[in-house]
């Protein structure tokens, strides 16, 4: 399993989760965990996904997610899970 953390930050609007998860489904990326909060109208979402079965390279995945982020009008970051594990787990 190759875990990647996707973070979405931006103005709350309809369809952020729907469009993100549709994109992930189209590329055979499995969502393992999802959490979200809305603070002062700012949408914060974190998804942990398994990219081991995806049909595109990681670079393409990052590029396409960025393009999607521009369409929706939010910021999306895709980072391998290890960086979070290293910082927050011994």
């Amino acid at each position: 399993m190759e875990k990647t953390v996707i973070t979405v930050v931006g103005k709350d609007t309809t369809g952020i989760i729907a469009r993100s998860s549709t994109f992930l489904y189209e590329h055979n990326i499995n969502i393992l965990d999802i959490a979200q909060t809305v603070l002062d109208g700012i949408f914060n979402m974190m998804m942990i996904v398994d990219v081991s079965g995806m049909d595109i390279t990681f670079e393409e995945f990052v590029c396409k997610m960025k393009a999607l982020a521009e369409e929706i009008g939010v910021d999306i970051r895709c980072q391998r899970e290890e960086i979070f594990d290293m910082m927050h787990r011994i």
Binding site: D33, A35, I48, Q79, F84
Partner: peptide, 12 residues
Amino acid sequence: MLNIKEVFETTN
């Protein structure tokens, strides 16, 4: 499993 607070602490 990571939680949303830890993830956003790192991205911040």
